[in-house]
Amino acid sequence: MIPTLVRFEDVSFRYSGPMVLESVHLDINEGEFVGVVGPNAGGKSTLLKLMLGLLPPTRGKVSVAGRPPQQATRMMGYVPQYPAFGRDFPITVEQTVLLGRLGVTRWWGGWSRADRESIRNVMERTEIAPLARRQLGTLSGGQLQRVLLARALACEPALLLLDEPTANIDMRSESDIFDLLKELNRKMTIVVVSHDVGFISQYVTRVACLNRTLICCHPTYELDGRTIKQLYGDAVQMVGHSHD
């Protein structure tokens, strides 16, 4: 039996107004690649923040590897939707990725040689090694996403959480990043939040449809028009077109 890595038991959450999430039950098993989809303000990012322990549930219980999320942060890597830092911050790509080693490296002084060697592999894997000495502010959107992914991978996480990792980049970079995630999924559990159900269904093993409550969570081949309509509140039209 595959062990459960993340468990939501009857979880509800509100910031200060109405409930953002209501009675969510969700189990994510080790080795899964789960896509969380749904409309804007449907609670997708909140679900991730509850998983990360950044928010406490208003009701119910969240656990990661059988522990409260706050005690499991060191086994989690996180790629945020919006970078929380200014683009003019004087920091290179290498230094940014090194920050991902916090929690697994020594607590005092600068970075060790082992840290630098460890992130070299991650940077090669995410194809940002040639950018190591570049300033973060000079990168394109796609390059920055790869740096944030490398930073999340630097602690060698067992669970990788990504919040709309390709929201502001072109389609080719989006495919490249998801190809890489598919490869990473051989070694780690991945949960990715996206508004693009059509695109991520090519990659993920299971889709969790969320619109304040969890509407369903099932393998991608079971996702049909009825579920999509229930999720987004309207019919979704597919438009065929070609580029000559």
């Binding site: 942060t73 060191r74 830092f85 920050l99 916090l102 929690g103 600068g110 970075w111």
Partner: peptide, 18 residues
């Protein structure tokens, strides 16, 4: 040095890294 850099750069990420 590492902790101050992390807190100045990205508080949320620093918190997640313990």
């Amino acid at each position: 040095y590492k902790q101050f850099l992390a807190v100045c750069f990205d508080e949320e990420f620093a918190r997640l890294r313990g």
